[in-house]
Simulated assay, not measured.
Amino acid sequence: MTAGLLLGLSAVAGCGGGEAAGREKAAPPDLPVIRDGVVELPAGYADRVGISVAPAHYEDVRPVVHVTGVLEFDAQRLAAVGSRIAGRVADVDVIEGSKVEAGEVLGTMVSAELGTAQADIAAVEARVLAAKRDVERKRSLLAEGITSQRELDLAISSAAMFEAQLRAARQRVVALASAPAKGKLGINALTSPISGDVVGVHVSRGQAVVPSHTAFMIADRRSLWVRLSVFEGELVHVQAGDPVELTPTNHPEEAFAGVVEFVSVGLDPMTRSAEVRVVVDNSSGKLRAGQAVHANIRPASAQRRAVVVPRQAVIQIDGAPIVFVAMNERTFEMRKVTLGVGDFERVEVRDGLREDEQVAVSGVFALKGELYR
């Protein structure tokens, strides 16, 4: 039994010694070495993690202010149509979505007040006609010596008074109905002042309306607005005339051109932002009011020529922007830089990097990870 126990212990000891020997023979993997902010890579490591470099170079660059907003109708191409007098709707000639031209009839109303004003025109016209005939008669009588000059002057004065009353009656009808009297008395035609789309119909046949009621809304959708809230820090370079690229949130592959038309002169004290109004060309008709969009404002006044690098070359370490500068194929220096303006793809480096220095543009996070290993 003693002999068997010794043989078993010898076997166990032999197995343990073999594993230990195997661990000693296995070579440790090649890993980067970091000395004083310089990362030295082992052979083949850059290819394994996909590190590539690109040179810093001078290029025109300007910032991009990215905000979101909602499209709305251009207030200068929007018209609210209603009656200037109280009445009842006789007919509605359009529906929401109808396309109309300027001057086209949208609906008609019946108004007793308008009928009275139109009837007054006919009455005054009769008085004017009678007064003119009286003037001609008095002239003939004066030539025959039957009447006096004073009688003729009184007739001329009376005719002038009636003509003034006629002009006033006609202007009253225009003021009530926005158009001269035509056709049946008391009928008021509501017409569109602009060409565009009917975007709102707020009346129906037989409905009684008052002057404060908006019956129709017409919009020229060839131009739209988007009001953007831009924070104080990004507002400094934005000005009227700056180009804007807009993409619908539900169709980011489509882009539309716009231009800054107005920058508010005051800031919202709560949000520290200001309104920037952008006019968007919608000749294609693809955009709709109420649609959410992403807007990229490119301030022209901030454009300058500077040393730039791809944005993915810059990482943040302890809150500071850092790039990895290639000293040679296997050595990278971690260097702090000062950034300036930039867009989504490039960024200006104001300090810390010279033109033509090579920086890592891919595999950057692998290099950053070595700093914390």
Rank of each mutant, 00 (worst) to 15 (best):
3 A>N: 15
6 L>H: 13
11 A>T: 05
19 E>R: 09
24 E>T: 05
25 K>R: 10
28 P>A: 15
29 P>L: 13
30 D>M: 14
41 L>I: 12
42 P>A: 10
42 P>H: 08
43 A>E: 15
44 G>W: 10
45 Y>T: 00
47 D>A: 14
47 D>H: 08
49 V>I: 07
54 A>K: 00
58 Y>L: 14
58 Y>I: 03
60 D>G: 13
60 D>E: 15
61 V>M: 14
65 V>G: 03
66 H>E: 13
75 A>D: 14
76 Q>T: 13
76 Q>F: 03
80 A>M: 05
81 V>M: 00
84 R>D: 03
88 R>V: 09
88 R>W: 13
90 A>T: 13
91 D>M: 13
91 D>Y: 07
92 V>E: 03
96 E>D: 03
100 V>T: 08
101 E>L: 06
103 G>A: 01
103 G>P: 12
104 E>W: 07
104 E>N: 06
104 E>D: 13
105 V>N: 11
106 L>Q: 03
110 V>C: 00
115 G>N: 10
116 T>C: 00
117 A>W: 06
120 D>M: 11
122 A>D: 10
123 A>K: 11
125 E>M: 00
127 R>E: 10
128 V>G: 08
128 V>M: 08
129 L>A: 07
131 A>N: 09
134 D>P: 12
134 D>M: 13
135 V>W: 07
138 K>R: 09
139 R>Y: 10
145 G>Q: 05
153 D>W: 09
156 I>W: 10
158 S>D: 15
159 A>Q: 00
163 E>I: 02
165 Q>A: 09
174 V>S: 07
174 V>T: 14
178 S>A: 11
181 A>P: 02
182 K>I: 12
183 G>N: 05
194 I>L: 14
199 V>H: 09
200 G>F: 01
201 V>N: 05
202 H>K: 14
202 H>C: 02
204 S>C: 04
205 R>M: 12
206 G>M: 03
207 Q>C: 07
208 A>V: 14
208 A>M: 06
211 P>H: 10
213 H>N: 11
215 A>E: 02
215 A>D: 09
225 W>G: 05
227 R>A: 15
229 S>W: 15
234 E>T: 01
235 L>I: 10
237 H>G: 09
242 D>N: 02
249 T>G: 11
253 E>M: 12
253 E>L: 12
261 E>Y: 02
261 E>P: 06
262 F>Y: 10
265 V>K: 14
266 G>Y: 02
277 R>C: 03
277 R>S: 12
279 V>G: 07
282 N>Q: 03
282 N>E: 13
288 R>L: 11
294 H>C: 02
310 P>H: 00
311 R>C: 02
314 V>K: 06
315 I>L: 12
319 G>P: 06
319 G>D: 02
320 A>K: 13
326 A>G: 06
326 A>H: 11
327 M>V: 15
330 R>A: 11
335 R>G: 03
336 K>L: 08
337 V>I: 14
337 V>Q: 09
337 V>L: 01
338 T>C: 02
343 D>Y: 00
345 E>T: 14
347 V>D: 00
352 G>F: 01
359 V>G: 01
360 A>T: 00
363 G>E: 03
365 F>I: 04
365 F>E: 10
366 A>V: 00
368 K>P: 12
371 L>I: 07
